[in-house]
Design a protein around this nucleic acid. Structure first.
Length: 213
DNA sequence: ACCCAGGGTCATA
DNA sequence: TATGACCATGGG
């Protein structure tokens, strides 16, 4: 799908422009998992508030959330939006984690098994699952989001209609299966998306989006 | 007042 | 399979 060096050329442009992004901003794998759900179609700013509420209430843990009533959890995560939906999704996910024996136990499973398990949880789609696999479980899974699509379209590397799996496997086929690389790459794409184009010489945005060939 | 944000599900055709 | 409605807060 992508010719051999294009993906590394793009990565080098991004890294040169922006440097390391230090993702995922969380202290524990469980915090990554909660953040991955809360940030669905929601700015990270809002998620920070919600996570902070959970921390200050002493509720940022698997057992705590698993046993919590809907309304108490909803009050905590309200700043992240869609709170009724996200309460259900968080509890679905925690119920699954609990049933599987916790994060430590899941660490032993092969990546494809883990991914199928996550996708079977109602409320966990491909992007959220892959966020969790990469940033909580450190698996070599490339995360695709709308920013990734838009960047590839603007570079003329894809048409835009490709489905999620096609793009993910495209990246994974063109890059070494290196979690640290995927971690930084996706973070850089998000970082780049937030960059305003100034349309002047040396604009970082324009330097990155100039044609590769 | 309008648009978007580190998506996903469900009902309908 | 492919659209559209829906979820909801906070910042530009």
């Amino acid at each position: 799908m992508f010719s051999r060096n294009v993906l590394m050329i793009l990565y080098d442009r991004l890294f040169t422009a922006y440097g390391p992004q230090h993702w995922w901003p969380a202290q524990t794998p469980f915090e990554v998992i909660v953040g991955a759900v809360l940030t669905q179609n929601t700015s990270w700013k809002n998620v920070v508030q919600a996570i902070d509420n959970l921390k200050r209430a002493g509720l940022l843990g698997l057992d705590a959330i698993h046993g919590l009533d809907h309304d108490t959890l909803a009050v905590c995560i309200r700043p992240s939006g869609y709170f009724n939906v996200k309460v259900r999704r968080l509890k679905n996910l925690c119920a699954w984690l609990y049933q599987e024996g916790g994060i430590q136990r899941l660490e032993r499973l092969p990546t494809s098994t883990l991914r199928n398990g996550l996708l079977a949880v109602n409320g966990i789609g491909p992007e959220t699952a892959d966020d969790i696999l990469l940033y909580a479980f450190n698996r070599p899974v490339f995360v695709i989001d709308t920013y990734t699509r838009k960047l590839l379209v603007s570079l003329g590397l894809i048409e835009g209609g490709e489905d999620y799996e096609a793009l993910r496997t495209g990246f994974e086929a063109g890059l070494a299966p290196d979690p640290a690389l995927y971690n930084e790459y996706h973070a850089l794409i998000v970082r780049h998306a937030k960059e305003k184009c100034r349309s002047v010489p040396d604009c970082r945005h324009c330097l990155i989006e100039r044609p590769i060939y």
